[in-house]
Design a protein around this nucleic acid. Structure first.
Lengths: 399, 399
DNA sequence: CTGATAAGTTCTTTGTCACAACAAAATATT
DNA sequence: AATATTTTGTTGTGACAAAGAACTTATCAG
């Protein structure tokens, strides 16, 4: 007879035993080197507050796991014995996959966030989930075989333009791809043998930005990105990624901005992403979808009053989204990305965006544009894999 | 010369040393007993996953700190040696203060969340911050002197209807009280000698609900409360309270719901709390402000078509707020409180509230009414104090 | 009254980290 | 060029926390 289930909620951080303590220290130090680049052991000591000898032991453990290696610095500025610099291992990589309407992107990303290689496999039509897995699997073995040194692949991260259940990587719906209830992570695991995760692309873009870009060292961050397939976003609060109960949090694209507005693909009305689209802005200045990166310049150069009206109107609606977000999340930074960054650069100041947020929250928030370029999604997709590795380095590699 | 400041961000949970390990276990077990009521040591063992002997040692430590005590159970159901039941100490209390427009509420709340005593000190006019401190200080010594056993007061928690900076308990603005930039926590500390904290009343109401009420054991919770002074709220995500960078997060009352709507006190337009007020609903059924608790019944009984229209319209606007919240936070539960619960009970079903949220998030969310009654705010205000105590029991009492 | 069961108690072992003493390797000073 | 100073790695020791085993205690079932 099974015993009565306890409220299994692990109270507080799950660090109760000495074993978990060491795991935590391994995790923290690996995380610092992953995010902060090469760091001397002396700096790690100061940053963690641990003892010199402890840091030495932990770094030695990480080196045994081939996750980091130590090198003596070439030049040392200050007096005293030089401290060995801890680098992330260059042979440990994650594979990033990003299916799109007309192509599949596949990349090789090293621990530390460097994109080593990247390919774009074009498709004739919008690919099915099965096709994406097949194309990506081929591309992956191709990428790996062309590599000279042998790499250790720790897993696959897939960035999907749609809603993904984090627990098992099930794509609930990706309307632009025409996908519904596709167990994408499981499909990748079966096809490649590598442990796989999938998540919403906008959330992963934010992860990249939050770990390596404009949101670095920001504990309370709101990120909104606009692309060809709509508007998404993600939130970091208290230094932690906001996922919600299943991973669907951060859908800024479906914020209500206009009563009885255009019908949205989601079934609702007045959604932000139904009212403000990249296509409409591109059309207004006569650009093609492929020229989205020129939107900011084109908007700045335009003297067409119709464009000015469209921009003003779009900024107003973006302002509603940002205002709501500032009131709800009280972030220190709001990052705008994709065509929303272009829209932002067309605004005379940030008053249209945050002017109507409550004063207390408004005063300490700043709006800025994304810092990362095209690699963004590759880095973000790899990051879901690395996050798992970093959470429990030795446990992850043992399994 | 000061050394160069390191990015002092403690990576991950700050549990790096064996000392912090014990602190963490003290904290976890005290938290379980505080929230879950009396628990046997055997159950604590199962809930924490720690060893019998460890739990025994930790509980002994907590007993030494006079935070818990153990009693043998009167009746035992199963075979085997009876496990001592760990109770929260009844002599450890926090003082809860809640200033309102026409009164100051002061309460004595025990560890474990029981309200021992409570007084309402009526005021002729809306009191200033100084007056509130003065009235409350008198009421506190009065409450304490009338108590037969000697109590250990661990601190004061103040629930303020306005925006409060959490770090130092500065009231940034409480428009209904007419307060601006009042260092309320510091004022209480000076006047009473007890360590004091202040926070937004709606957030504290949510804390109560999240710890002891409808949001118990819910890791992803959205809470929206409507009262005489407007609409506020709070969010728990991933089991943690969402505060934002300074503590102003959760201002659902200023969500945009109607273009060119009524001007709001915040300076914005179309805010939810400007469009839907308790007063208007009370007026529609001919109730007074003091009869707010009868609103739900009155709305149910009303046959007036004007009331029906107002209710439908208000529900629509509430639906916008809830829909946005579901899309952004992906909660498992949305709790409605105050007059919003009355409004909710007047709805035929929850379709008006969550019908337009994105499907994936909508399917797993449920909307329910607050479970806690009038004590809510006292419990919540005490909770900011207890949270500090629980985070580091021995450190808190040593300081 | 006896056996089964469950859980507290005690003692030992293991593992983690802090600390102190020492050694090493660089710069700074004379 | 020699020496002092500074900073940091290294090593060994001790404190402390938790796990585990062996034993004891207290209840229930028959």
């Amino acid at each position: 007879m099974p015993t009565v289930a306890e409220p299994a909620r692990p109270p507080g951080a799950s660090v109760g035993t000495t074993e978990q303590l060491r795991r935590n220290n391994l995790s923290n130090i690996l995380s610092l080197v992953h995010q902060g680049g090469p760091l001397s052991r002396a700096r790690l000591t100061r940053m963690t507050g641990l003892n010199r000898s402890t840091v030495g032991a932990v770094v030695a453990d990480l080196a045994d796991l081939r996750l980091v290696n130590e090198r003596m610095p070439e030049r040392s500025a200050k007096a005293g014995r030089p401290s060995p610099v801890v680098h992330v291992d260059q042979g440990t990589v994650a594979i990033a996959v990003n299916p799109e309407v007309d192509a599949v992107h596949v990349g090789l990303v090293g621990l530390g966030g460097r994109v080593f290689k990247q390919v774009r496999v074009a498709t004739a039509n919008t690919p099915s989930a099965e096709q994406v897995v097949e194309l990506a699997t081929t591309a992956i073995s191709d990428l790996l075989s062309r590599q000279d040194h042998s790499l250790r692949v720790v897993g696959i991260g897939v960035a999907v333009p749609g809603q993904v259940r984090l627990s098992d990587g099930l794509v609930r719906e990706a309307t632009h791809m025409g996908w519904f209830e596709q167990p994408l992570a499981a499909m990748f695991e079966r096809s490649t043998g590598h442990p796989s995760w999938a998540a919403n692309a906008a959330v992963l873009a934010m992860r990249a930005e939050s770990t390596f870009g404009a949101g670095r060292d920001v504990d309370d961050l709101v990120y909104v990105i606009g692309g060809a397939s709509g508007i998404g976003g993600g939130v970091v609060t208290g230094g932690r990624l906001l996922t919600g109960t299943a991973g669907y949090a951060g859908e800024f694209g479906h914020t209500f901005v206009r009563p009885s507005g255009t019908a949205c693909q989601c079934g609702g009305h007045g959604c932000f992403e139904a009212e403000v689209t990249q296509q409409r802005l591109l059309d207004s200045v006569g650009l093609q979808a492929a020229q989205a990166d020129q939107l900011s310049a084109a908007l700045a150069e335009s003297t067409n009053p119709d464009v000015a009206v469209l921009v003003a109107e779009s900024l107003d609606l973006l302002g509603i989204v940002v205002r709501n977000a500032v009131n709800l999340f009280n972030p220190s930074v709001v990052v705008l990305s994709g065509f929303l960054a272009a829209l932002h650069s067309a605004a005379p100041d940030d008053r249209a965006l945050i002017g109507e947020a409550i004063r207390s929250a408004r005063e300490t928030v700043r709006v800025q544009d994304a810092a990362l370029g095209a690699d963004q999604l590759m880095v973000g997709a790899a990051e879901i894999v690395f996050a798992e590795l970093i959470a429990d380095p030795s446990g992850f590699l043992a399994s």
